[in-house]
Amino acid sequence: MNVLVLPTTIFYLLASYVCISGLLNKQAGANKWLWLSAACGMALHGIWEFQHLFLAQGQDLSLFNVAALVSLLISLSVTVLAKPFKLWFILPVTYLFSIISIFLAVLIPSDYILHLELKPQVLIHICVALAAFTVLMIASLYALQMAYLDWTLKRHKPGAIHPALPSLMRIEKQLFTLIRLGFVLLSISLLSGFIFLNQFFAHGQAHKALFSLLAWVIYASLLWGQRYRGWRGKTVVVMTVSGSILLTLAYFGSRFVKEIIIGS
C-alpha cells in the first residue's frame, strides 16, 4: 500500500474528530487543529493523486483514480466554504468519502491510460465536467443538510437550533447558488463534449450523454420551478439528489462495469 495512504487517512480522521467534537459541544468546529489536520490530509491526498494520475506512459484516469480526484476537489471546496456557508455537518462526510476513495483505488487497481497533452480540447471537456460534478455533488450534500434541518424544525428536535447550522432560508438560498453554478458548468460540459468528442453519442458512450442530458433537464426544471412556481422543500431535495445520481451513473456507471466487473 502506498506510503501516503496511512498518514492521509490519519489527518482526515483527525479533522473529522475535531469537527464532530465541536458540533457535539454546540460549537462551529472552526479551530486551528481542524484547519491544520484538514490541510495536511488534503495536501497528502493531492500528492498521492499526482503520483497516480501522471505516469510515464500517460495520464491514468481509471475509475477510482478519478473518484479519488473528485473526492479531493469536494473536500477542498467544502473546507474552503465551511465557514462562510456553515458546512460543518458536511465536512466529516466529505473527508470519509476521500478516505474510502483512496482505499478503493489502492485495493482495486485498474488503469485507463490517456494522452491528454495530445488532445487539449478533451482536457478542457474533462476539467469542466469534473468541476460541474463537484459543484453539483456539494449541492446534493447541501440539499440533504436542508432536509435534515427541515425535519428537525417540524418535529421540534433539539438539534434544530445549533450555532453550526445556518437558517433554513439561508441554506435554500445558498443551495440554489450552487445549483445555478453547477448547471452552467454542466451546460458547458455537454456543449464541449458535443463539439470536441467525435463519439459523444456513439455506441458504448451514448448512455453517458443520455444520463447527463437527463440530469441537465432535471436541474433546468428545478431552476425554472423555483423561479416561476416557488418550488421548495422536499421537491427541491428530491430533484437535486436525483440529478446527482444521474450524473454519477453517467460519469462512473459504465466505467465500473468495464474496469471492475468485466476487467476482473
Rank of each mutant, 00 (worst) to 15 (best):
S192Y: 07
L144R: 05
F89M: 07
F256E: 00
L190N: 01
L246W: 02
K86E: 07
L153T: 13
G204P: 12
G22R: 05
A164I: 10
M42K: 00
F252C: 02
G243P: 08
A38H: 12
L214S: 09
A209C: 03
V237W: 11
L210D: 03
L91P: 04
G233Y: 06
V237H: 06
F200E: 00
Q57H: 03
A131F: 11
L175H: 14
Y251C: 07
W88S: 14
G230K: 07
R227P: 00
S212G: 14
M137D: 11
K26L: 14
A202T: 05
S244C: 11
N198C: 03
C40Q: 05
I113H: 04
M146W: 02
L153C: 10
I138E: 01
I126N: 03
F176V: 09
S140M: 13
K208G: 02
A131D: 01
C127D: 06
W33M: 13
K173V: 02
L213E: 14
A215G: 06
A132H: 02
S75K: 07
G159N: 07
I161F: 09
R255Y: 10
F133T: 04
A132Q: 05
C127F: 10
I261L: 13
C127H: 04
H162L: 08
Y219M: 01
L214V: 14
Q205M: 12
V217Y: 03
G22F: 03
L247C: 05
F85W: 14
W48P: 00
N65M: 01
C40I: 07
I90P: 06
S98P: 03
G204K: 08
